[in-house]
Design a protein around this nucleic acid. Sequence first.
RNA 1: GGGCGUUUAGCUCAGCUGGUUAGAGCACUGCCCUGAUAAGGCAGAGGUCUCUGGUUCGAGUCCAGAAACGCCCA
Length: 1058
Amino acid sequence: MFRPVSNKLDVPALEREVIERWRERDTMSRYLARNDGSDRRFSFIDGPITANNPMGVHHAWGRTYKDLFQRYHTMLGEKQRYQNGFDCQGLWIEVEVERQLGFNNKQQIEEFGIDRFVELCKERVAKFAGIQTEQSKRLGYWMDWDNSYYTNSDENNYTIWAFLAECRRRELLYRGHDVMPWCPRCGTGISNMEAAEGYKDVRHLSVTLRLPITSPDHDGEDLLVWTTTPWTLSSNVAAAVHPGLTYQLVEGRDGRRWWVSSGSKARVAGDAAVIREAPGAELVDLTYSGPFDHFPAAEGVAHRVIPWSDVSDAEGTGIVHIAPGCGQEDFALSKVHGLAVVDPIDQFGVFGDGFGWQTGRYAGSVPDASEDLARDVAADLDERGLLVAKESYQHSYPHCWRCGTQLIFRLVDEWFIAMDPLREPIGDSTRSATWLPEGIGLEERELDWLRNMGDWMISKKRYYGLALPIWECTDCDGWEVIGSKEELRERAVTGWEEFEGHSPHRPWVDAVEIACSACGGVARRTTDVGNPWLDAGIVALSTLKWNTDREYWREWYPADLITESFPGQFRNWFYALLTESTVMTGQAPMRTLFAYALMRDEHGEEMHKSKGNSIPFDEAADRIGADVMRWMFAAANPAVNLNFGYGPGHEVVRRFFLPLWNTYGFLVTYARIDGWTPDQLDGVEAARTFLDRWILSRLDGLVGEVGEGFAGYDAHRATRAIEAFVDELSNWYVRRNRRRFWKGELDADKRAAYATLYEVLTTLCRLMAPITPHLVDAMWDNLVAGVSDDQPDSAHLASFPERIEGRADADLDASVDLVRRTVALGRAARSATALRTRQPLRAARVKLPAGREAFASDPRIDAELRQQIREELNVHEIDFIPDESEMVERTLYPLLPVIGPRHGASVGAIMAGVRSGAWSLNEDGTATVGEATLQPDEFQLTARARPGHEVAEEGDVLVALDTEIDDELATEGLAREVAHRLQALRKAAGYEISDRIRVGIAAEPEVADRLESHRAWLADELLAAELALGPEAAVGDADAAETADLDGVTVALSVARA
RNA sequence: GGGCGUUUAGCUCAGCUGGUUAGAGCACUGCCCUGAUAAGGCAGAGGUCUCUGGUUCGAGUCCAGAAACGCCCA
């Protein structure tokens, strides 16, 4: 016997119960092991979650996909690895630990001790990995949690060593001297792909200044330059012009004359008189005096004009200030033109010696204007008469993606992986994978990034992260890459003892010195750590034991699926994965990449902690439950941003969870009353009704649809199909079958009803198991596990449903569809009559679509369907309306795609003629509309309602009602009304559905007489053991009573328990 | 600055290769129904389909231009 089901659905409470049951029964372990013996594989590689904070709801979106696709393949019987991953190294963690310790810069870390700092970083990731593990379990994410991978593991780090050694072997790795974006707070370079993440609009003080030309024959002439980074002016060595642009010498202030490009002249110099024009090429090689030539750092710098085709005059003056120590393009130009390179600032963004008053000052922009260097530069220039203009200028500027500090560009030595030789092979890998969802150009976006990608800067001047296995000789220029721990042990000259027993992290690994293979000198490890995307990108190799068990790797590589949110990952994880895997294996690490967009709040706004609209995972799990979230995530269109919030969450509960839960509750309620159990199947097949076969047909279609959806990583499609099915189940199948469950004895018909609904619900449990594991198992435990010994005790140990031959029946589906349309139209017509639905009517008249003569071709089924319509509409008869009926008129419907090309300009006239009724049919099958003749293939005839009848129509179906009420109908309506009132009293008295009662109906004799003819029906309807009817009729000890006025008829009603 | 995308009801979004009167869900209003339902049904209100021009018998849909917003790149 089933346990009773509460009609209140509290999802979080239900989930807690289910989780407790799973714990008691060790369900998850059995799930993880259930396919151990299978020879089929589904390989999923998890993209590591940053173990740096508790999860937000946005993490739960991706984890829902990861879980549900794995669950689906588990139910198909495929063996899997179920390995979750944590991202555990990198600047993001250092920044949080610094914040905890109250540190602001690197010196404080070094004073604190790198070893202690690194230990704190490790502790932090361990702590949050633990928290995220618990949160993931709360989500219902079933993974092999004791076997999670951590990117700070030895395995991961040493696999990257092997990768870098391979890069070295193929001469892809190099030490570069270049200008890179630099975070002065973190004291480290930022790779271009990270910098791309942090562009924000900010205002900077921009200045326009004059640079006096020192070449002969240019006395009194200045070059006008404009810059948004005044701090770089003291490093100026050149001014660039576009050789093809036209430049103008114009009248300036204080008797000076200024050179500007013609395109910028109006903006920069207004209507100043033009003295002469010259192409940019003519200005090349002119010399000028720099803005800060009196600083020692500028000593010996010969400032001159150089040509540069990237100069534009859309902004500024068309003459660009060049400081090779402060800009990437500037540095590249310095190589081309042999310019001096002035390198002004240190790792903290502070000017070094030789920069006069700027020495010791911070170069970057600061919030406090009084300390802003740009302001002081402008004032200095103004004092010396060099400032022409200044303004606050808004532009998009890179910021540190972890700490938010504005980046500055700085000359550094960093390690790079050359991309040119890799573009093609990585492109091939990219193209070999399937990128889903389709239609949003995911693959093309990855390829676009690959085409434009600069060399990958992999080093960071930090403390906690991958120790780059690069040893640099202290005597010669030599450097080498160590590919493994074993190799390091062999090569170690000193420091091995200090390192042994530690993870390959700073500071321990820094102690190891080797002998330079070129000169024999002492080689020390570069103190740089690695870019964290190396860590995440290697997991397709490291977690599959590339270094230690190549057989295992072959078994699982490439992955069938990886999945991650796509904005941002093209240049991060996807890119790193493809690069590292392609270098090492020559192929992509995945067959399919399924990606999804970003989560927004329910109004479409970006979620931010600071805005207060971000939702912590725990809060959402407590308030609406994991399964509600999971359903929303699975139902989302992954191609577009998901608007998530409690409002939409409650809507899911109301619209979908409740009807499903109540359907389940309905089955259990009546099965308990009847003592029905799932083994009671006598005569069920033969007794199945039309509607039973219909819902099973729909179920079969659903099984196919959901399976295809999951197999194609289209959870959206699966959820849509399930929602539509549950609506049909609840609002048609159950609604139409209520009485079968309600009526007297447990016969074959009733068993068929139970068996059908039972099969539908248990199949739904298995179909939905990957999406809503808790809800489904709550139902499964009661419906299956509690009553059957030969079934798994959890839906998650069951197999995924398969289609059943012969179940799907398109005719059934079409017939029910027609019935439902007919009922909907009948209701619309009823609404128009102002007669309440409880009042029976004599007949509904139905005009069926052309070519249909009945609701079903089988007369028995047709009769069943007509009976359903009668009940729904409360009418006695269903008649059909022939085309010739006076209620119907025929309408000509021209087929526009056909007549358009043939009749051209007269289409408008034809349509007008049809609308006004000015058309006629001809003997030969053509039709005449106004002047035009339509051929038989150019139109269709359709029946439409003739005005003046109470009808409703939609498309090719029309329903009209006979609204005449005779005495018999009126009396029946009265009985229905009385029954309705008494049912309300039953409810008010708090009776159970199956309680037998006594009923009293007091009414004047004439009314009592009328009701007498419906006595048996009333008693049956109300489960009344006694029914007193007469002028004074009443029951003793009434639990509830009411005197009702029914359209002028007064009745006194009372009920009591039998 | 370059590339891509979006713009349809109060909100979130569908509208396939051009075709009768542009749809759905939510929210709103009214009515109906109810012993499975925090449910259901019917109806209503709500639209210059961002704008301008073009192609066409016919444009939300195709073309050109503009605007706003967003994303990517620089």
